[in-house]
Design a protein around this nucleic acid. Sequence first.
DNA 1: TTAAATAAATAGTAATACTATCATAAAAAA
DNA 2: TTTTTTATGATAGTATTACTATTTATTTAA
Lengths: 224, 224
Amino acid sequence: MELSLKIKMNDKLFLRDPEESELGRKIVEFSIILIHKIGFEAFTFKKIAKEINTTEAGVYRYFENKHRLLIYIVEWYWSWQEYRLIFQINNIKDPEIKLKKAIHLISTPIEDDISTNHINENLLYEIVMLEGAKSFLTKHVTEDNEAKLFKPYKDFCACFARIILEYNPKYKYPHSLSSTIVEMAHSQNFYSKHLPSLTDFANSKEDPQIASFLEDMVFSTIKS
Amino acid sequence: MELSLKIKMNDKLFLRDPEESELGRKIVEFSIILIHKIGFEAFTFKKIAKEINTTEAGVYRYFENKHRLLIYIVEWYWSWQEYRLIFQINNIKDPEIKLKKAIHLISTPIEDDISTNHINENLLYEIVMLEGAKSFLTKHVTEDNEAKLFKPYKDFCACFARIILEYNPKYKYPHSLSSTIVEMAHSQNFYSKHLPSLTDFANSKEDPQIASFLEDMVFSTIKS
DNA sequence: TTAAATAAATAGTAATACTATCATAAAAAA
DNA sequence: TTTTTTATGATAGTATTACTATTTATTTAA
């Protein structure tokens, strides 16, 4: 059985659907590689255009601007993670196990290249860690949110919140706790790599210390 | 008694110390107003120059670029918060009260204009909420960190971590928990304003729900 | 086969992020 | 007091960014 999963994205994110053409897919594929390499600030449409042998105007036909492209790939990531989450906890009854699996899922950097498609998920993980927050930390969050651009991220958090409530239906702050866990899974990883004094973890890839920290925090909080 | 507190900033953050001249102070003062108004992306040196009747080149004599200026004001904020924190918990013995005060201090938006100086702290609070993370979410974090640019932020978190350890010297993750609280104090506030489904708080300014959420989380976590 | 739609190539513009030069005024040192 | 330093101001210039518009070529449909 060979299947490739196709994620339907909010069509306000693009001018022409990049999944519908070879050029579109290449724009997404190489944007991920280039943003990962040089960072979002230094990334320009001219630079990817050169990388994939098209013109700047060619890229503009697919995306309004580079910020929209960032939202596109970040939100693709959250859709993909929600899919993984639902898949992983399928058929599991025990909410404790569900929650533990969910925490591990987001706090463990994607190591192996599971990608059957053109998108490199492990680069994407690192992009979300470094650039993810920039997608909504803007003066136009409200409009972007009204256009439902952040739905995948919010859905992922909502999914997480539901598991928390399954474990303890009386817990008062399931949504805030979810967004805290999800944010921290990424930023604690970032800190341990770049600003280690803000964490208690050596930058080791082996043991899932961040997951332990979050697990401990979550269960203490929702038990009491 | 009238005193104005002067915070000594890392001199790698500027080319000419903005505290040492009228023009320098005006650059900082109006940059805060302008970044708050139009957002960091749209903010340019030409625009503040116009605002304060100097030239673009005039601003460049004080700051290398707008990113350095952002770090300057964000880190000024953290120095200021550390000062407030130390002041507030001075002479208090009980670590529980200390911790509660600390949580309230960062999770409560600065309402009144305490500023005796040219810096508007309540605008600064909002800038840190929206733009703060951008100061270190870059490809050059490591160099910036080696230059000690983020020392005030790290010091603030360390101060927080010490209080946590006073309460429970055996808790395993005091630094990660500190950075979690500090980050969340700002981002939960941002979410409640702009992406409310990621929180459990209505956007009300009266009751300190975010503080309650964080307090509950912290004490549950470090008690067990 | 011809017209209509789609995509690519080229060119152009305003704004951004700087750097450099020169003149002048004020402050500090000789 | 005169000289020198230093700070600011004014002007100009450049490469890059973030686009838009127009023209040309190619594919698809009637």
